[in-house]
Design a protein around this nucleic acid. Sequence first.
DNA 1: CTGTTAGCGCTTTCAT
DNA 2: ATGAAAGCGCTAACAG
Lengths: 341, 341
Amino acid sequence: MKPTGRATIADVAEAAGVSKATVSRFLNHRERLLSPDIAARVEVAIAALAYSPSPMAQALSHGRSRLIGLIVADITNPYSVAVLRGAEKACQDAGYLVMLFNLGNESEREREAIDALAGYQVDGFILNTLGRGSNVVDAVTLHGKPAVLVDRRHTGMHTDFVSLDNHAAMQVTCGHLVEGGYRELLYVTEPQKGVSSRRERTAAFGACVAAHEPRVAGEVFECVEGESDALDEALRALRQRARRGRRAAVVAGNAVVTLRIAQAMARLGWQFGADLGFVGFDDPEWASLIGPGLSTVAQPTDAIGRTAATCLIERLRGLDAAPRQLLLPGELVVRGSSQAL
Amino acid sequence: MKPTGRATIADVAEAAGVSKATVSRFLNHRERLLSPDIAARVEVAIAALAYSPSPMAQALSHGRSRLIGLIVADITNPYSVAVLRGAEKACQDAGYLVMLFNLGNESEREREAIDALAGYQVDGFILNTLGRGSNVVDAVTLHGKPAVLVDRRHTGMHTDFVSLDNHAAMQVTCGHLVEGGYRELLYVTEPQKGVSSRRERTAAFGACVAAHEPRVAGEVFECVEGESDALDEALRALRQRARRGRRAAVVAGNAVVTLRIAQAMARLGWQFGADLGFVGFDDPEWASLIGPGLSTVAQPTDAIGRTAATCLIERLRGLDAAPRQLLLPGELVVRGSSQAL
DNA sequence: CTGTTAGCGCTTTCAT
DNA sequence: ATGAAAGCGCTAACAG
């Protein structure tokens, strides 16, 4: 047995009585430039030896790895995982394997991640990263590989971009609340910093409120990790404002915030819907379990991941169009927490 | 510019005025067999060219890839993700990269996954797979790579194994319930099939009940996906039995079942604790939000992943001990759903 | 100590 | 249509 235990292209060549080049041609150009009888002999030999080519060697020689590098800001985030899942599926279907790099929320590691992945000759990148310092731009373009951004834009980055249609989703959400009689709205987001999705959603919220003014009033609260007192206070203030017949509702900017608000309400002993309207972004599995049910904006995470992978693979196959923006629609799932009066 | 854009070992060699072999030695054997002045020259050249070796080429030549293949039965499962996270961290710390393969619950793909990963010369495997048909055994040993199993054993597989200490965890759980006055216990699990963790937990439950007999009675219910009626019925039956002063409690075998039971209770309009005691396995984020709080057995998922990776890396570094079994302790988190009377 | 030489497994001109 | 040979970037004998 060979050191690796696996048959090599040389073994197949010998078994078939042809040259390595011929076997390689059979692999890559199939029927195109091979006489049928030779092709048949090679095919038999391959089957007999259970040969399968080494992607590593192929990558080294041909420059392609059939690998896609996926960089995720925080794999703890269910949203990221859901996207990852969709992307991974699409990649596998297209014959690509995913190499995963988790930043664990340490944005400094972005560069490291890209370099590491590039070292393995990944054919392209799917990036769902922090995006504060956009040094990614250089890093990626430096390696000359195509990339697609998910959920978070990088200013000045000339690539495909896939994300929830934040503006439309927010519009539906606010519309639903206003229609249900809610007049005092509070939007809670994680600190916006440079994260584009957070800024877009916040901006969209502002626009929606503006569109309904002066019937409706809206505020934004940045919810910092660990400072739950501040959140409680913000909720209390919201409820104060609601007193004179204007129902109040809170809108959460993402899954993390949704959870924090739910925890805050539990601390305060309030009921969703009854004491305060509530719509969460992202649709956690527990949304239907809690109180009268939690209304949410569900993201098409699987489709987002899938779309991102598909975009990238199209580029890898040579598509040379202008950078695309794919905004997928969210779905407002109405449950008890935002019921009309 | 070179085709890849990156400097190669040859470039460095030329810049330093030495041979490629010397550069390679500098990389791999550092100070050992190099004269200080040459080493210095190489070091300068490397820095000047921002050279970093191609892991691909190294893998091809030296047989090592610094890659670890991680196969996961279902990345949708938060447990798997948590483990993945821990493992990925430990791998990165040790200079390894993770190649992820998600089976998406299709056990047939196990073989495909192993072969694909082996093709990329992964140095070893971390397996959290289905384990019904243990053809994995052959596949892995065939490629002659070390592997560590997480959560699920494969009978006859001669490798390290990392998991929750199911027996101890179940013992604590049942002890807690019995002490709290619960006498009619129902253990709900997904269909056991060949999955070792499910069988172990079920067996442990049986043993615990036996230890408390005849004071305590216990039953096991296999909860099939989609057949929620059957689950409702089982819960009703449990409550029937509880009537004559014997409090009843249900124990969930994993996170999926925990969720299903919570949903069933919502359907039935029952309250945890009050109407029925409840302890879940795995500690979902919503455990504290629902009703009086859901008691759970929290798994040390991060430690499990970390330990698995560490085990594997030790093997890669040459450790040649007998297969180890690392059972990590769970933690019973008591909340309102299993309160004593 | 250092350079030379051969591969690792595959693709790809360039001849034939 | 097929084979021979060079080379992808690196490591590992083998010589000096």
